[in-house]
């Protein structure tokens, strides 16, 4: 474990808590893409199947449970409890166009071909594009509430910090995972225009307006 991965995991946890708290407090999921949340739940489910078979550390097991529980709780809030506030009209990204290519790619490019490894690889590829429905929704509505942009900033920062973690681990342990690194770079690049808007607008107290 290193400081980059620890702060990355914390940024990830903070993002999830910001979102859950926002939906719970405002009793509304307006402006939130349920599809992205479904993709995140799929990412954690396919990645943490080894939760009961392999033990790394109490931290690792604890965080896996938290990510799984909070992602399903968020989906419950969006699609069940506050479904009246779910914005169907703007959450229209075709997620099958993200799931199927990720699965195909995972079957073609993986470290070795077995059930858990292919699913892990699928979860890595899917995570890199899982935010697209949310970013698409923000561009369609043309704006995002500031709390949603804080959520996106924290979520985008988590994988950017993981890139620093991978550089650090390569420098200190000579360990690297090219699949995770390439997907992580793609994932972070997808946030770049949002990061720019967040830093130039939201941090100055302006609303996040995306060019529609």
């Amino acid at each position: 474990m290193n400081i980059f991965r620890l702060t990355g995991d914390l940024a990830h946890l903070i993002a999830i808590i910001i979102l859950l708290h926002k939906i719970w407090k405002s009793r509304s999921c307006a402006g939130i893409s349920g599809k992205s949340q479904v993709l995140f739940a799929l990412v954690y489910t396919t990645r943490y199947l080894d939760l009961v078979t392999s033990y790394v550390s109490i931290y690792n097991t604890f965080m896996k449970f938290v990510f799984l529980a909070t992602s399903y709780a968020t989906i419950y809030l969006i699609y069940v409890k506050f479904k009246a506030t779910y914005d169907h009209n703007h959450d229209t990204f075709r997620i099958e166009f993200l799931i199927l290519p990720s699965l195909a790619l995972a079957l073609l490019i993986n470290h070795y071909f077995n059930f858990l490894e292919v699913l892990w690889t699928f979860s890595i590829y899917l995570e890199s594009v899982a935010i697209l429905p949310q970013l698409f929704m923000v561009s369609k509505t043309g704006e995002a509430e500031s709390i949603t942009s804080h959520y996106l900033f924290a979520l985008g920062s988590y994988r950017a910090l993981y890139i620093l973690n991978w550089i650090y681990r390569y420098a200190t342990e000579g360990h690297y995972d090219l699949i995770a690194i390439v997907a992580g770079v793609v994932q972070t690049v997808l946030y770049c225009d949002f990061f720019y808007l967040y830093i130039t607008k939201v941090l100055k107290g302006k609303k996040l307006q995306l060019p529609a």
């Binding site: 790394v56 990510f67 070795y112 071909f113």
Partner: peptide
């Protein structure tokens, strides 16, 4: 293929 290095990252 790479041996099964344990996945210790989230």
């Amino acid at each position: 293929s790479k041996r099964n290095k344990q996945k210790d990252e989230l």
